[in-house]
Write a protein that binds this DNA or RNA. Structure first.
Lengths: 187, 187
DNA sequence: GTCTATAGGGCGATAGAC
DNA sequence: GTCTATCGCCCTATAGAC
């Protein structure tokens, strides 16, 4: 057994979500989080760049899956179709964590600073999807626009998912939003 | 003549943009800005909620114009068409300030914290446009999706505008992005 | 206007694993 | 010995409270 309990990062992330949900983001200090996780304040900043970032360490998985989903889309698929396949694939990153996603969404919705960070992650997702589209031959500005539109559908689908009871899957909601988007531009 | 120079807010905003461009956002302290504007630090926070907000005081004008543009769209226009008319109208808020917009865009592009704030303003624009669409009868989720798509086109158009030499107007770039978006979903 | 708590970065010390 | 995780203490600027 080592000198320290293992998985300090995981304990910090869990402690932070709990405290943000219990007493609010602004009312929670980094020291509160560190104490609950059994480490010092300094260790928190070793794992997370700032107090917001602790809620967003899963963003990279979502991005990676979405990029893979775009790459795996059939060669004949158009840009919007491929981008849609990407964000639908990304749903796998969250699908089995409905309760966690819902709690987290509530915390984020209650604080503009956290919304900013979420938007930054969604923008990064959009850029990653756009790059994946360019890799399969989609030129700009079509790649950026298709990616942004697909991410918008993902966001709308995600909101519907956490607003519901979780019986309908996230991917189902996102697919519905994508269909609606096609209808809008086509009609 | 009063006891203080007039337009402290304007001087602060100008001083901030200059300093952020000259020496970087992070290297600039609020005190630097206040000194150049000839006021105290305390006065800065009287006008701006935080160090980022000083770059975004024009956002409300853009939002107001966009909402008016949606409301003024012909009754027969579809959701995406009306949302597009909104963001095209919003271009009037920036059209005659190309140099200012370009400098500001460079500063924002160099700092993730400022990008976050910009994304928050774009999200607010999207919500305002969506609300204007609902006011003219568009149901959800079509209103949210059309608004997000139009704002994405605005952003793409804006980026092309500041990347260019300014001879083509912002509205022209945004209209082109909207056309591309329609083509994407329609094809 | 002054006073203060918190965020967040820099740097070196320490204690184990290997 | 090296490497890595953690701590401790110092510091400044932000931003809110009084």
């Amino acid at each position: 057994m080592g000198r320290w309990e293992p998985d300090a990062q995981g304990r910090l992330a869990r402690a932070a979500l709990e405290l943000y949900a219990e007493q609010g983001y602004e009312q929670t200090t980094v020291q509160d989080i560190a104490e609950r996780a059994g480490v010092t304040e300094r260790t928190f900043f070793r794992y997370f760049a700032d107090k917001r970032e602790v809620l967003f360490d899963g963003a990279h998985t979502l991005e990676r899956l979405a990029v893979a989903g775009v790459a795996a889309a059939p060669p004949g698929a158009g840009p919007l179709e491929a981008a849609g396949a990407g964000v639908v694939r990304g749903c796998d990153a969250l699908a089995d964590r409905f309760q966690h996603a819902r709690t987290r969404a509530g915390v984020v919705a209650a604080n503009p600073g956290l919304q900013e960070r979420e938007l930054l992650k969604m923008a990064a997702l959009g850029r990653a999807v756009a790059a994946a589209l360019r890799d399969r031959g989609t030129p700009e500005p079509a790649a950026a626009l298709a990616a942004e539109a697909a991410v918008a559908a993902f966001r709308v689908g995600f909101e519907a998912w956490v607003a519901g009871d979780g019986r309908r899957g996230l991917d189902d909601h996102v697919r519905a939003a994508l269909a609606e988007l096609r209808a809008l531009a086509g009609g």
